[in-house]
């Protein structure tokens, strides 16, 4: 079966560029191989240098995918965490005793529920408020003797949020001893932490990226050096520079795609198993829950996996371009 590619509907120059693209050559080459035809490729498909390059690319792609995936997960978790905090405000009712106090909490809750931009109002009971103080004061009966303020958790509609300043003024004018905390200070600190985490991740990603580029360029150059004789022979039998470069681009793009896919597949397996591994390692205690709360579920969504595809494309392109420049550098020494 002969595989043909039709680009008749594309404008002339674009069609020519697409037709001569190494990416098209690699894909159509794979299709031809599946169809069971074709003479041996001009560039030796399997050589020691080529195998070493494959291993280097697979490992570096794996590391680059792991790092980019980790940075992506941290960024997503930080955003989710930040969004959770930003969508809630707390109202504190601090003055009052006995049934009057309970009545005041109910009135404040009803008042809040009527305000626009508020989705849910959750007044915490005396027990729940006491539990929040237990880590500092212990679980003794001393809490019942103290004038513990009551908290009301208010979930706001982020799509049309209320005017918090107006709400604060309204609360303070209508109820004595009631304050609204919009967590602004906490949010600012959180924003600093999350930005630091993401920036740190990006710095690591850049380092891994630089190491990946350096390793792949170096390994490709070594592989190109072992192919010098082929370039020389092609040059002497009258091959044009573009032809020789194209043959090597095809070869190294093929290696880059295959090895890159192996590395990306390895990283995919790691991220698929990561939630399970985290559950097994962290157990079921409070510390584990806090840990999960902090770093999220470590589940990569589809844009995250798409990022792996992008890494593979970058790695394969890097191989292709390095081989192209290598060919031209070697050919220049003959002219």
């Amino acid at each position: 079966m002969k595989v043909t590619w039709k680009f008749d509907n594309l404008p002339g120059r674009l069609a020519e560029r697409v037709r001569t693209s190494p990416w098209v050559a690699v894909v159509s080459g794979l299709a031809r191989r599946q169809a069971g035809s074709g003479t041996a490729p001009i560039v030796q498909p399997a050589s020691v240098a080529g195998r070493a390059l494959t291993v280097v690319i697979a490992i570096m792609t794996f590391l680059a995918c792991l790092t980019s995936g980790a940075v992506y997960v941290v960024n997503q978790s930080a955003n989710d965490w930040f969004a959770d905090i930003a969508s809630e405000v707390t109202v504190q009712v601090s003055e009052g005793q006995g049934s009057e106090f309970e009545k005041k909490v109910t009135l404040v809750s009803l008042f809040l529920a009527k305000q626009p931009g508020i989705l849910r109002v959750n007044p915490l009971s005396a027990e729940e408020s006491g539990k929040l103080l237990e880590p500092w004061l212990g679980g003794s009966d001393v809490l019942s003797a103290l004038p513990v303020p009551r908290l009301i958790a208010v979930e706001i509609d982020r799509s049309s949020p209320p005017d918090l300043n107006a709400l604060r003024e309204s609360l303070e004018s209508n109820f004595k001893g009631v304050t609204l905390d919009d967590h602004r200070r906490w949010q600012a600190e959180l924003r600093t932490v999350t930005r630091s985490l993401v920036l740190g991740g990006i710095a690591v990603l850049m380092l891994v990226g630089a190491a990946t580029v350096a390793s792949i360029v170096s390994a490709t150059k070594s592989a190109m050096a072992s192919n010098r004789e082929i370039i020389e022979v092609l040059h002497f039998v009258g091959a044009r520079e573009r032809f020789i470069a194209h043959e090597f681009e095809k070869h190294f793009l093929n290696i880059g795609i295959r090895a890159g896919l192996v590395g990306a597949f390895g990283a995919t397996v790691v991220f698929l198993l990561l939630p399970l591994t985290m559950r097994l390692l962290s157990g079921r205690g409070l510390a584990a829950a806090e840990f999960r709360q902090f770093i999220g579920s470590a589940v990569l969504d589809w844009p995250g996996y798409l990022l792996f595809g992008f890494v593979v494309v970058v790695v394969a392109t890097l191989c292709m371009l390095t081989s192209r420049f290598g060919v031209y550098r070697i050919l220049k020494s003959y002219d």
């Binding site: 041996a40 004789e229 002497f236 091959a239």
Partner: peptide, 29 residues
């Protein structure tokens, strides 16, 4: 230019002392 030099080379055949055959291709190839 290099492309025209390649065209001229096509009109010339060369036999090297050390043959320069590509080891991964058959004699026919």
């Amino acid at each position: 230019p290099s492309s025209e030099r390649a065209d001229l080379r096509r009109r010339i055949g060369i036999v090297f002392q050390d043959f320069r055959l590509l080891d991964h291709l058959t004699t026919w190839e």
